[in-house]
Amino acid sequence: MPKFSKPKLPGVISGLGVTFRTMMEGAVTVQYPHEREDPAPRARGVIALKEENCTACMLCGRSCPDWCIYIEGHKELRPPRREGGRPRSVNILDRFDIDYGLCMYCGICVEVCPFDALFWSPEFEYSEPRISDLLHDKDRLGEWMDGVPEPEPLELGAEVKGKK
């Protein structure tokens, strides 16, 4: 345990040694806009929407803790698959907005989605000067799909998930 009460010359020299070594070590911090550290693949950065999977079932919007997902959809009739069958009714997604000004990044919407239409992406660079621009519509949310990572392999002893 060093005593700081009597500054002796060897203490000063060893102290300068620490200074010198620290100087050679380089900085821990990263100069952000010039170099960036990638967050972990699991990081909850932004929610991406795979539009063709969405059936406008509203489960995500209902389970959101602060109701920041806005969904509108309508039903359309499509010709039957087989001759003489009944026409199919298909859900068409008109509007899917997430207000990132309100979002708490809890991930409940991604989890409850029964059709795998929502994913987490670790992208985080979408700050906006105006708060209204934080409302991402379905095209903007679809663009985030490029950054969605593959599911990671799990640690030893983990049970591989079967079909839900």
Partner: peptide
């Protein structure tokens, strides 16, 4: 804000190499 606990367990297992 991990929000990792679920009633009855956890959201996911640990990633490889953790």
């Amino acid at each position: 804000h991990p929000n990792f606990n679920r009633i009855g367990g956890l959201k996911d297992d640990l990633p490889w190499g953790w």
